[in-house]
Amino acid sequence: KELVLVLYDYQEKSPREVTVKKGDILTLLNSTNKDWWKVEVDDRQGFIPAAYLKKL
């Protein structure tokens, strides 16, 4: 499984997104879309802008 580091706080703006904090380490589920990556946060799955994440 691939992990990503959150570079900036992000507040979800729709039900398909998730809220994260800078410094969080998340499981990356899908990065095929270059703009929005799907991650897992506390048993929730959702999207975050790829620019907010860095692969570890």
Rank of each mutant, 00 (worst) to 15 (best):
Y10E: 01
A51C: 14
R16D: 12
Y8F: 12
K22L: 05
Q11K: 14
V41W: 07
V4M: 03
V20R: 01
W36V: 04
V39R: 00
Y10N: 01
V6C: 08
L26T: 02
G46K: 04
D43V: 08
L26Y: 05
L53M: 05
K13F: 06
V20Y: 05
I25C: 05
I48T: 07
A51P: 09
A51T: 15
K54R: 14
E2C: 13
R44H: 08
W37E: 01
I25K: 05
E12P: 10
L56G: 02
K34N: 12
D35V: 14
V18S: 02
K13A: 14
T27L: 14
Q45I: 14
W37I: 02
V20Q: 01
L29E: 03
E2D: 11
V6A: 07
L3V: 08
E17M: 05
I48W: 01
S14V: 05
K21T: 10
D24P: 00
R16S: 13
R44L: 06
N30Q: 11
A51G: 13
V41R: 11
Y10K: 00
E17K: 05
E17D: 05
L29S: 03
L7F: 02
Y10D: 01
A51Q: 13
D43E: 13
I48P: 01
I25Y: 04
E40L: 10
D24Q: 15
D9A: 07
D24L: 09
S31N: 08
K54P: 01
L28W: 01
V4Q: 00
P15N: 11
I25R: 05
D24M: 15
G23M: 03
G46C: 09
T32F: 10
D42V: 12
E17C: 06
D24W: 14
Y10I: 01
G23V: 01
K21W: 11
Q11F: 15
Y8P: 00
S14Y: 07
K55W: 07
P49A: 03
G46P: 03
E12R: 11
L26R: 03
T27A: 11
Y52V: 14
L29K: 05
L26K: 02
V6I: 04
S14R: 10
W36G: 02
L26D: 00
V4H: 01
D9Q: 03
V39N: 00
F47C: 12
Q11E: 14
Y52Q: 06
D43G: 15
G46M: 10
E40Y: 06
V20N: 00
E2Y: 09
K54W: 08
L26A: 10
L29M: 08
V41A: 12
L3W: 12
W37S: 02
K21V: 08
K1S: 11
L28Y: 01
T27E: 11
K13P: 05
L5S: 04
L56P: 02
D43F: 12
G23Y: 05
L5V: 12
Y52F: 15
V18M: 10
Q45R: 11
D9W: 03
Y52N: 13
Q45G: 06
I25F: 05
D35G: 08
P15F: 07
D42P: 07
R44G: 06
R16M: 13
D43W: 08
K21A: 09
V18Y: 03
K34F: 09
V41Y: 10
S31H: 10
R44D: 04
Q11D: 15
S31L: 04
K55H: 09
L29F: 03
T32S: 13
E12D: 05
N33M: 10
R16L: 13
W37D: 01
Y8V: 10
I25D: 00
L56V: 12
L28F: 02
D35W: 15
S14A: 09
Y52L: 11
K13L: 10
K13S: 11
K34I: 10
R44Y: 06
N33P: 05
W36L: 05
W37V: 02
S14E: 09
V39I: 09
K55E: 07
A50P: 09
R16P: 06
D42R: 12
K21H: 12
E2L: 09
A50V: 07
N33A: 09
Q11V: 13
R44F: 07
L56R: 03
K1R: 13
L5D: 01
S14G: 14
G46N: 03
I48Q: 00
T19Y: 03
D35F: 15
L56W: 08
W36H: 04
T27W: 14
K34Q: 12
K54L: 12
G46R: 05
G23F: 04
K22E: 07
G23E: 02
V39H: 00
L3A: 05
K21S: 10
L28E: 01
N30W: 07
W37R: 01
L53P: 01
W37N: 01
D43L: 11
K34V: 12
G23Q: 02
Q45E: 13
N33Y: 09
T32D: 15
L7S: 02
L26I: 14
N33T: 07
E2F: 08
Y8R: 14
E40K: 10
Y52H: 14
D24R: 11
E12W: 08
W36I: 04
L5T: 06
Y10G: 00
K34W: 07
N33I: 06
L26G: 13
K54S: 11
F47R: 03
D42E: 11
E2P: 10
K21E: 06
S31G: 11
A50E: 04
E2R: 10
L56S: 03
D9G: 06
P15I: 10
R16W: 15
D42T: 09
N30P: 04
K1M: 12
L5P: 00
N33F: 09
T32C: 13
V39K: 00
K55A: 07
V18N: 02
E17P: 06
R16N: 15
Y8G: 08
D9C: 05
P15T: 11
V41F: 11
L53V: 15
E12A: 15
L26N: 01
G23D: 07
I48G: 01
I25G: 00
D24E: 12
K22I: 05
L29D: 01
G46F: 14
P49Y: 03
L29R: 03
R44M: 07
S31V: 06
Y52I: 15
Q11R: 10
V41I: 13
E40P: 00
D42L: 14
Q45W: 09
K1P: 14
L3Q: 11
T27D: 06
V39L: 04
K21D: 04
K22N: 05
L53N: 00
N30E: 15
D43K: 11
R44A: 06
D35N: 13
Q45F: 07
T27Y: 12
I48D: 01
L56M: 11
D42S: 13
A50K: 08
T32E: 15
P49D: 04
V39D: 00
K34M: 10
L3H: 11
A51R: 15
Q45D: 09
I48C: 13
T27P: 15
P15L: 12
P15Y: 09
L3T: 08
V20T: 04
V39S: 00
V41S: 11
G46S: 04
A50G: 05
K38D: 03
L53T: 06
V20E: 00
F47G: 01
G23S: 03
L53I: 06
S31Y: 08
T19K: 05
E40F: 06
W36A: 03
V41H: 13
W37G: 01
V39Y: 01
A51H: 15
E40T: 08
V20D: 00
V18D: 01
G46T: 06
V6E: 00
P49F: 03
P15W: 08
N33W: 09
N30T: 08
K22C: 09
R44E: 05
L28R: 01
D24H: 08
V4W: 06
K54E: 14
V41E: 03
K22H: 07
W37Y: 05
V41P: 01
D43I: 09
L53F: 02
W37H: 03
D9E: 05
K38R: 10
I25H: 04
R44C: 05
Y10H: 04
D42Q: 12
R16V: 09
L28N: 01
K54N: 07
D43Y: 13
Q11T: 14
